[in-house]
Nucleic acid binder design. Structure first.
Length: 407
DNA sequence: AACGTTTGCAACCGCCAAACA
DNA sequence: TTGTTTGGCGGTTGCAAACGT
């Protein structure tokens, strides 16, 4: 049966909190911890339901909350993480420790989503919405788009693997260091990791992009010898066999590629995602079928990723393999990634930017206004910007340290 | 100045999954 | 094993402030 509403009792107050209520809640939690939220209101003398108290505490009263405008760097992080994780605000919030998921969600909905849309980027998929005007060849367009999706999917899977691993790691560290909870006397027990979407265990997932790829081509082409290519990949859609059928580009995963999200990172191996125009081949092998689990988190530190992208329209290889630049808050990468991304981000927006006291970022607005943004530029600019956009997302993954709260 | 519209944000709602009895 | 409780999450709403006409 379904549960009864938590606020079914009559007489419970709803709506905005008064300063007096805030004071009561704050005083009670500081003294006793929140304990059972359901029981808290009565003990604290509040005519509120426990759920309302919890929300008020976590979203507003908690002492470790940073309020005010988001700085550019925070915006970047949100966008990048959203590209990787979607609307998993709590997971995103773990990467912005002083921001609440609710605040991030609001900021996304009111600011960032619109800004991306302005840039011609679908805020849901983080894919360009204006491909149609850039290519007269629909298949070419699709291939390029799928290439982006492949990068995205790879990065996302990697991030999720890290996410789970880190949550477990944190769980262990919390057990060893319960003082971390001193602010919240009765916070969730140390052995309770942050709530995160679990990454499926067992056979690694096949890249969704490969399924999409299959779907895109299976209508017109008979897939040859593809049914067994997935190996232990749990129903992985085979890609092998597409060879030569794509007019412009292909997915070509080295055997290391699937390991990026599942195995084999630890030996400083280079993970390679390669998109080679002209010939289609690919695999979605699950390799050993082992999802990386706890105990090998150190593996990520030595990860050395190289992403090659080659298509009919683009031919570039970029690498983010500098382990010395894996700072917690500052995504790094080849060249001045932050500036490039920021320029890209801001070029479509003339809105207010804020100085970030926390990270010391000055206003990045510069003189980029009026450029019309990435989507408005000529095709080559558009592609370059789009490439940078995805590059930045990949860099975020690559640059996030293993001790990041996110990864 | 008055009115209508848009924006930003706090709070609520319903669902889900883990914990518990 | 099953049903219930609880906490957490993401989506949505309501309202006040800001803005435009």
């Amino acid at each position: 049966m379904g549960r009864s509403p938590c606020c079914d009792k009559v007489g419970l107050k709803k709506g905005p909190w008064t300063p007096e209520e805030d004071q009561k809640l704050l005083a009670y939690i500081e003294e006793h911890g929140h304990g059972s939220w359901r029981a808290l209101p009565a003990k604290a003398g509040l005519q509120r339901c426990g759920k309302s108290c919890r929300l008020r505490w976590t979203n507003y009263l908690r002492p470790d909350i940073k309020r005010g405008k988001f700085c550019v760097q925070e915006e970047q992080t949100i966008i990048q993480l959203h590209a990787l994780l979607g609307n998993r605000w709590s997971a995103i919030a773990t990467h912005l420790p002083k921001r609440t998921d609710n605040e991030i969600k609001n900021y996304w909905n009111t600011h960032l989503k619109k800004r991306l849309a302005k840039m011609g980027i679908d805020p849901v998929t983080h894919k360009p919405k204006t491909d149609a005007i850039l290519s007269t060849d629909g298949q070419s367009k699709n291939a390029a788009n799928l290439s982006h999706m492949a990068q995205w999917e790879s990065a996302r899977l990697e991030a999720e693997a890290r996410l789970v691993r880190q949550s477990k790691l944190r769980s262990n560290s919390f057990q060893n260091d319960p003082d971390q909870f001193s602010l919240l006397p009765s916070s969730p027990p140390p052995n309770k990791p942050p709530s995160m979407v679990p990454v499926p265990q067992g056979p690694p997932r096949c890249l969704d992009i490969l399924k999409a790829w299959n779907g895109a081509w299976s209508n017109s082409n008979e897939l040859a010898a593809g049914t067994s290519a997935g190996g232990p990949g749990a129903g992985a859609a085979p890609v092998t066999g597409l060879g030569g059928e794509s007019p412009t580009s292909t997915l070509s995963y080295s055997e290391n590629a699937p390991q990026m999200s599942s195995n084999g990172i630890g030996d400083n191996s280079t993970t390679l995602i390669e998109f080679v125009g002209g010939n289609s081949s690919g695999s979605c092998e699950g390799t050993t079928g082992n999802t990386k689990e706890e105990g090998d988190q150190e593996d990520w530190k030595g990860m050395n990723n190289s992403v090659s992208f080659t298509s009919g329209l683009q031919d570039v290889t970029w690498t983010s393999a500098d382990p010395d630049h894996r700072h917690h808050d500052v995504p790094s990468g080849g060249g001045n990634f932050v500036e490039r991304f920021t320029d890209l981000l801001l070029s479509s927006n003339s809105g207010d930017r804020s100085f970030c006291e926390g990270c010391g970022e000055s206003d990045h607005n510069g003189d980029v206004s009026g450029s019309g943004g990435a989507a408005a530029g000529p095709g080559s600019d558009y592609l370059e910007d789009n490439k940078n956009y995805w590059n930045s997302i990949l860099n975020l993954v690559n640059s996030s340290p293993s001790d990041s709260p996110m990864f």
